[in-house]
Design a protein around this nucleic acid. Sequence first.
DNA 1: ATGGTCGCGAGGCGA
Length: 267
Amino acid sequence: MKIATWNVNSLRARADRVEDWLRRTDADVLAIQETKCKDENFPWELFENNGYEVAHFGFSQWNGVAIASRVGLDDVERTFPDQPTFGKGGKDPVQEARAIGATCNGVRIWSLYVPNGRALQDEHMPYKLEWLRRLKENAAGWIADDPQAQVALMGDWNIAPLDEDVWDIDYFHDNELTHVSGPERAAFEAFVQAGFSDVVRPHTPGPGVYTYWDYTKLRFPKKEGMRIDFTLASPALAQRVTGAWIDREERKGKGASDHAPVVVELD
DNA sequence: ATGGTCGCGAGGCGA
């Protein structure tokens, strides 16, 4: 079985690319982030025409997550339990469309779009950290309740766990940028402490290996990227991983998402 | 040359 995650940065703008990619890659499951649409604008036919069931959680032009599967799509869950809400500047808190889960051929897949954080002192940063903490609390419980549980936490984590996961760590620290701060890295490491592991890095060692390149500043041609898209697997699922790769080719050319798809192969 | 881009949706926000 082949499972993948991809922040597509608008599914409608990327429909042709996503369809070509699914056919080319032959993925069984695709966890999608940033669909940037509501259900009434969702390209359902794209998936149905290619043999995939799909579940979507999105209600505006912001965020939006989905799971497409051709090996079953059961027990769909939109938001995880106690997922934090956010109300900007004291406005009424809303539940953002950042998490959707489904069971696909025995694997509990979560498509996750972790809050960006925006800036170290921004109100979005404590939201990001709390969002991750509560996800981790849930995830730890899932494998505590069932050590054989096969769980894949897939998506755009908006964290670069290692210095080598950005092209120039000094640039990030000197400019007090997010994604590399101690609290963000600790929030990521907490999943590892809970028993989850990054099953892609062993098959795609750095440095210089990234999943995201900013559209601005010619970041892609200059090979200035970030590794921020991850699949964290429960122990039972990690044992099944036979390979993984980052589809850097998909970042090339006109009409590319700023993120590359990441593929995990299971026995 | 110290910027450089996208997407959504119709001006500015988010990344």
